[in-house]
Write a protein that binds this DNA or RNA. Structure first.
Lengths: 206, 206
DNA sequence: CAATTAAACGGACTTTACCCCGCTTATATT
DNA sequence: AATATAAGCGGGGTAAAGTCCGTTTAATTG
């Protein structure tokens, strides 16, 4: 008896070969992106170059977008560390308003640096649910807005809207082409974001 | 001489067969959507059912998303009519703030009614530029914001952000699944939108 | 009305994401 | 160590988007 009853939810820990292959695939994907851009990462090519079967790639990541999501998550992890434990205003210790502004600036830089990957991490029209990256933003905003109080009727919704206002312009329409020439986009979006947040908080005590 | 020198920009008027086929394809696409949903509209099936070659479909619409964009544009035309010439607060005659709120409410309803099509009108991650529908929103917001004055440092950017805050939640993450159960989404988003706009305008004379 | 030409047409072909399922292997159990 | 089994693996197969290019045709011109 006394066998380790696995709590029904938890999946039975990743098998060693699975982990090895997952890491391998991510590494190879990074190489391929560096060499030939996001577009050069096809499932067949990735599998072959990693010396694995195509089926394995799909088993590990589910979809093509899944690979880029995973790649992004690795990066985002470092970022999240700063948000949770780093120095203010990005990290805890500053007012919600200042933290929102700081988060936005950092996130915009991050997205610009990883635009292609972030785009590729998005299946057609995001249908399959938010990229984990957006989830991170959303979660953080929810906390900050609730903390800030304000007279918010529905903080949840505002979090969603702000996340969209922050990420949408880069992930979606507008990043390049219509409206915003790529080079200036960063600072301009960052300034715009600051104005937006300050305007929302204007006149609030907090 | 005296031949009608076509101003270099204008394309040489759509040929009769081209127009006929374009309309035909749109009609058939609508039928197929009604019967089997957006997913049932494949390029092959559409072409065959319309009695045309696949090449023709692509020539007319460029990409699969192009078909849905065209479909949306037809609908959006009626809507735009209301915005340009209808009664206030949607049409001209009300303050910018009220018009923004009204536009948002109407647009949310429109998007909810046409969610699948709107999503399908979006190529992977919007890469190919904003759907024409978003363009409409953007243009309108630019005008309203400039008209409103406020102390805006960069009205262009705010227009983009607001458009994203309005359409993003529906077109992208959040519409169904994470967070917002579909049935309540409409009113809740509309209320949230109103709050957002009012908060932005708070304390302004205009 | 005949000639001219740019545009449109069609459908075979290519590419790629994603599915299926029989075989293999890591891990837990005794 | 032997066994059992859930997980993982591989790679051929399918479906659908998008391309190419030779053929056809609507519009224009003289």
């Amino acid at each position: 008896m006394d066998r380790p009853v696995v709590p029904l939810g938890r999946p039975r820990a990743e098998r060693a070969d699975a982990k090895r292959n997952r890491l391998r695939l991510l590494a190879v994907a990074r190489e391929m992106i560096a060499e030939g851009g996001v577009g050069s990462v096809t499932m067949d090519a990735l599998a072959e170059r990693a010396g694995l079967g195509k089926g394995t790639v799909f088993r590990r990541f589910g979809t093509r977008a899944g690979i880029f999501k995973a790649l992004l998550e690795e990066e985002a992890h470092r970022f999240q560390e700063q948000v949770l434990n780093g120095p203010p205003p990005l990290g805890p210790g500053a007012r919600a308003e200042a933290r929102l502004v700081a988060y936005g600036r950092a996130r915009i830089d991050f997205l610009i640096d990883n635009l292609d990957v972030a785009r590729a991490a998005t299946d057609r029209g995001f249908v399959a649910g938010p990229p984990a990256a957006v989830d991170m933003t959303l979660t953080h905003f929810r906390v900050l807005l609730r903390e800030a109080g304000l007279g918010l009727r529905d903080p949840e919704i505002l979090a969603v809207q702000l996340a969209a206002a922050l990420e949408g312009p880069l992930l979606g329409y507008q990043a390049q082409g219509a409206g915003l020439p790529a080079p200036e986009a960063g600072p301009r979006l960052a300034d715009g974001w600051r104005d937006l947040v300050e305007r929302l908080f204007r006149g609030e005590p907090n």
